[in-house]
Design a protein around this nucleic acid. Sequence first.
DNA 1: GGGGTTAGTCCGGTCGATGGACAAATGATA
DNA 2: TATCATTTGTCCATCGACCGGACTAACCCC
Lengths: 419, 419
Amino acid sequence: MGDVATARRGTNLPRMGDFNRSVIFDAIRRAPEGRSRVELVEMSGLSTQTVSNIARWLLEQELVVEAGKERAGIGKPRTLLRLNRTGMFAVGVHIDPAVMTFVVLDLVGGVVAHSRRRTPKANRPERVMALIHDGIEQLIADSEVPRDKIVGVGVAAPGPIDQERGTIVDPPHLVDWHRVPLRDALETSTGLPVLVDKDVTAAAVAETWAGGASGAGSFVFVYLGTGVGAGLVVHDELMRGVSGNAGEVGHIVTDPEGPVCWCGQRGCVAVTCTPQAMVEEAERAEVIPETRHAATLLRDARDVDAQFTRLCRVAAGGDAAAGDILNRAAEHTARAVAVLTNLLDVDRVVFGGPMWQRVSERYLERIPPHLDAFSATGALRRVPVVGTGVGDDVGAIGAACLVLERTFTPSAARLLLAH
Amino acid sequence: MGDVATARRGTNLPRMGDFNRSVIFDAIRRAPEGRSRVELVEMSGLSTQTVSNIARWLLEQELVVEAGKERAGIGKPRTLLRLNRTGMFAVGVHIDPAVMTFVVLDLVGGVVAHSRRRTPKANRPERVMALIHDGIEQLIADSEVPRDKIVGVGVAAPGPIDQERGTIVDPPHLVDWHRVPLRDALETSTGLPVLVDKDVTAAAVAETWAGGASGAGSFVFVYLGTGVGAGLVVHDELMRGVSGNAGEVGHIVTDPEGPVCWCGQRGCVAVTCTPQAMVEEAERAEVIPETRHAATLLRDARDVDAQFTRLCRVAAGGDAAAGDILNRAAEHTARAVAVLTNLLDVDRVVFGGPMWQRVSERYLERIPPHLDAFSATGALRRVPVVGTGVGDDVGAIGAACLVLERTFTPSAARLLLAH
DNA sequence: GGGGTTAGTCCGGTCGATGGACAAATGATA
DNA sequence: TATCATTTGTCCATCGACCGGACTAACCCC
């Protein structure tokens, strides 16, 4: 019934200090135009003295810079504090079935360097790992970021993952990959701290870090990749679940008359809302030409990507059948999202992921009314739906944000004593 | 897009002390047989000195008592600390459509007094409130608990509720009840702190407080009342959602061929898994005699209760049709629960609520295999299913536990500075 | 240029956690 | 039976982070 010895941990003075520093840092971070000490006092509830001390510390660490003054009528003007975007950097790696993306992010989440490499199909794990390591080192060199300014490396991959061991569990695209200690190996080879997480999770974290106002508070992040996943952010903290695999929404039923899913049910998200499913439906309806090779049981992700682009283009061109497919998918997605919002009672829903841009206009128009209709509280408490601002490299950007989050975000965990 | 001014708050020394005291208290609470200081040191990560100080403080407050010594081989024996069950008490009120239940709980969650009153059907809010107040005062008097030992009053009601204002939103059974300031009124009339929450939430809290091992860590609590609701506990903390209304599971689709629900979908939880739906199906199939009056659109909760008892008894007696109805409901419930466990990645599922006992045996046998089948991780990571130990008065007991939780449980919120 | 106002810093105090020395209680051993 | 090793738990001095109040700095207004 769970380990009895697992109890809540206490906290102490140094942890408290660390936490308060991160609270102030976070408040500054969330205001791109800068924030004054008085504002920080009001927001954090800390005393002016404490905020002053923390501000000095952040300035000394070169994480923050003073950025001009703000005149507000009479009295001494407030000095604004703003993030020093070159104060720290993080590296992100997205291991996708088709391609590996590498990015270097600055403190505010801006991309300062990025590169791509083809994901090797079948290879010895050591070889793959060497490729990843090489991609990281190459990019760091290209970016000309001093190594001591890099806080760490984040790795994102399609789940499931083993958070504890820091490894990807049986990635379908990397054969011979079993229990490979990815995290530990990269840590020793790069000499940097490494974090491993699901790409969906990473994308949600990217939203909290680089997403601006829509990344604050509590929200459900709906990730549109080859499949569909969800990231759950509650009170600015990501819910990872006990094994780091929360957010599986693939088998929520959205269409009682939909096609049969391999899970045995009808009309799951997996067969009604995923780009893969839409593409297959479009091919069957001959809305777009079939490209699938009979030999490949598992459809290639790059193929889905290209076909989905084609489907969206045809629909945008006015093809009714193509439009219908996308519209039905939007409605079904709204049903699944309603299950999440009814269950979790969040502030808003944020859409994103590599496939998002192509359907954003249609979805943002069609999903909100459906969502209102399916909402438990009815139209009484509307749940706003927005699209992410983070662009195409969400996976890699999110991966880097994992590191920034771990290092700089105030979370309950950082307060508690480690084991 | 959410208030920008809403930022994370800092913490300070007194809050830290308070938090650590609650951590130690919680660790002692969760070990009914008692816990020694050394164990507490290991569990909390705090120093021996700190634990020693906190232990002294708890003893002075008469919240814990020393309970014998534990010899473990060589060396000075450990002195065990155990909760002083009469150190503090809490009052709980469950406002149900049919009946109002009142309880007084001691520190370990044991019932020291309880009473029931019929819920008045149609009446002026002041009259209803006077009845509640009277019920509370009567019970306190009967229990002979000194008033200064009562930490507060918890009120549980079927949702939705308005957490902010502390009121029940349009309870279907209390006409003329609009925006009545229940919390504030009871606080002034009793002179005690009052908390208001959904009965489902309260039941989940009861599990964390009085449920023993199954109430620790992360779990989904499935509440079987007239309807079905869920309480979500993540890392020992209850997820209430931004407006206190998380846990709505009524419109998860579990049966694509099921009956049409008023929400427009087919086979929702509301029409496939709730006792109300089962009773109605049984009546239609003439498995149990119909008692419904044509006049009452909204079926009376007491009637559902009685009919459900009858249905379960008939099924237990070997009636195949009745058994089928319950078995199908079990399977559908498993589907809905799978949606929750896939999404939230929890340690276990706990069933409870007023209707639970009647189906516990059948459900505990039938749900686990279905759940494994519908699980995203397959049978790889089994999610255990257990029944609650908390008995029939879950609503009222949970209501009282709300107060105990708020007062004694270590939560991140208690660390942060108030506004 | 002086007064009023707001922003931010210096100083001493407070409080809770901590580490090390020490007292207490027990089993093992001679 | 006395001594020793071991473990438990407390006393004491120290540290470190926050806090309140006094103080300095920068600005607007008159």
